[in-house]
Structures are given as C-alpha cells and as structure tokens.
Design a protein around this nucleic acid. Structure first.
Lengths: 164, 164
DNA sequence: GTTGACATGTAACAAGTTACATGATTGA
DNA sequence: TCAATCATGTAACTTGTTACATGTCAAC
C-alpha cells in the first residue's frame, strides 16, 4: 500500500494534521499520488496503531497534528530501499491522449486543446512555485522534473494540433 | 470507470480476446493504465451485457474474440469528448522519486540507480518498437511522446546521481 | 448571525489485487 | 509425457470514491 508510505513521507518532511495532508497530496504530490480525506484519516489511525506515527499536538477545532516516529522512518526507508517498486501506472489523462488518436480530427482537436489548456495552467502554477523556492531545497529538483515533463507534453500537444 | 473505456479503445483499434487485452494493457498502455486478467474478463462481460462489445469469433482453447459495437464506439466518443477528465494520478515510481529525497545520499543513489536502469531498459524496448513502426501510424506519435518523456527522466536521474 | 474555511470522521459502494481453480494446445 | 503458454473464470480481500454527518472558529 503506497498511501501509507506517502503519508509517512509527507510527515517526515513536516508534521501535519490529516486536513493538511489532504491539501499536501493535492499540491506537492499531485503528479505522483492522490488521496481524499476519507482515506487519509483511517490511514493515519492505522499508522498510529502500528506505532509509525504519533499525535504531537492538539490544536483548535479538535485538530490533531501527527509526526512520524523512528519506527515509521525505519519502515519508510525499508520500503524505499528494499521493496521492489510497483511500476504499474494509472493516468487517465495519458489514456485519453492514447485513445484520442481514434477520434476524427476535429474532435481530437477539441480533446487535445482542453488538455493543452490544463497542462499550461499547471505549468504556470509550477513556475510560480519554483520561483518561490530556494534553489538548493531538495524539493526544487522535483519541481524541475515536473517543469521539464510539462515542457515535453506541451510541445507534443502543440505539434499534434498543428498536424490536424 | 476508465477501465471500461480503455477496453473499448483497445478493441476499437483491433478485436481481441480477454487474454490478448491483458497483454496489450502491459504493452501499448503500460504508461497510461494497468489491468489484470481478473479485472478484464468481468469488464468484458459487463460491456457485452451493455451491448458495447460483442463476441465475433470463438477459437481454440475456448477463446472468445471481442469487437466493439457501434454503441460502444458512441460511448467511447462521448466519454472522450464530453466527460471531464479525472486528472488525479497514481504512479508509485514518481512517489518514490519524491520520497527518495528524504534518504541519505548513498541510499538515494541505490534507489535512483535502480530506477535509472529500469527506465533505460524501457527506453530500449520503446526504441525497438518505434523502429518496427510505420512513421505515419497514429500510434507512432504515442511512442514518440514516451521516448521524449523517458529522455527527460533519464537526464534528470543522471543529474541527481552526479550531484550525490 | 451567517458564510466559508478548517477539521474529523463513517458508511456504502466501486475498483483493483491476489490467490484459487480449471482446462486446451503446442512443442520438446 | 512434460512443461510452457494460451485461455477463462471466480472468491476473498484491500484500496479508493462518493455521500453522509458533525462540529469549530474567524471574519464580515
């Protein structure tokens, strides 16, 4: 289960409430993993039961801030280094790109243009994020990878549009 | 449910048995969607019930070859053009790249090197596939996108290794 | 006082994985 | 005849989604 390890990883970067984790999945982890709050709260409960995270603070609105424990860090490291990665992917946008080739040119154009607009918007947001970051922060490398991947996608989508 | 549309799309390219679809998910759809045979057979049954696919041949070993129907083509087109894409992604490899930044340099090196080896292998296979393809086939564009994305990933992983 | 963001949870259902189960055909 | 591959299916379980449910706090 990658969700549990994703949660451990986010907490290793900084302690958070379940609510904050939900937003962090949508921000920093957007292109890697996705989870709703209805999955995150039970996951936190299980990780706490297993001694891999702990509540380190209780704040306003009954919020609970979790942090990773040493056992959690150990498990995260074990998973990253020793466990064979699951290489399977699920990416509906990529599926649509693939299936879009079946459409008539005008329909394909509609579908690809919508995609292009989305990726360009994501790209602008990622650029803004990069500009707000210290270049030596480890996270900057991730943002950089995202920007390069976007570049490839944008170019490809534009070429496809031209060929229509 | 994207699986049903992925199946429709593959059948629209060419009729297949459930067994062949399972392999085609692992080959042409590897970077977009993943499905096991235990999911594909029930999906085909449901699509047949809904009149979107039909059995067009029965061969050796009790095999059933399915093809997409007009209703299926219509549904696929409707889904591609009218339905709002689900942009959420699940990509364990990307998650590991992200979490890998938490590791000590030597461990990170191990993890990233394993990834680099995998992506390079994929890249060789994709190159071979491209070389066996007519350049004007629609599928060639998809392969080209895959090759460009691989290039970005390989470069990034090598840079990360150098900086260690 | 009421709207909106913060905050946490559960229940019912759908999708996906792993393991089980069976049998046909081909080639060595 | 034995192993490998082709071929289809189901059952038990886990993961993920959608909808429901509740309450806090700050700003207007």
């Amino acid at each position: 289960m990658s969700l549990r390890h994703a949660v451990l990883g986010l907490l290793a970067r900084s302690p958070s409430t379940g609510y904050e984790l939900t937003r962090r999945f949508d921000l920093s982890l957007r292109t890697a993993w996705h989870a709703q709050h209805s999955q995150i709260y039970p996951a936190l409960a299980k990780l706490e039961e297993a001694g891999m995270v702990e509540v380190v603070a209780r704040g306003a609105r009954n919020s609970k801030t979790y942090d990773i424990t040493d056992a959690g860090r150990e498990e995260l490291e074990r998973w990253l280094v020793l466990e064979e990665p699951d290489r399977s992917q699920r990416n509906e946008s990529a599926l649509r790109l693939f299936l879009g080739q079946l459409l008539a040119p005008d329909e394909r154009r509609t579908v690809f243009d919508r995609d292009l607009a989305y990726v360009e918007q994501q790209d602008r947001e990622l650029r803004a994020l990069r500009d707000a970051l210290e270049p030596d922060e480890p996270f900057a490398a991730q943002v950089d990878l995202g920007l390069r991947t976007n570049r490839v996608l944008i170019d490809w989508l534009r070429e496809q549009a031209e060929r229509t």
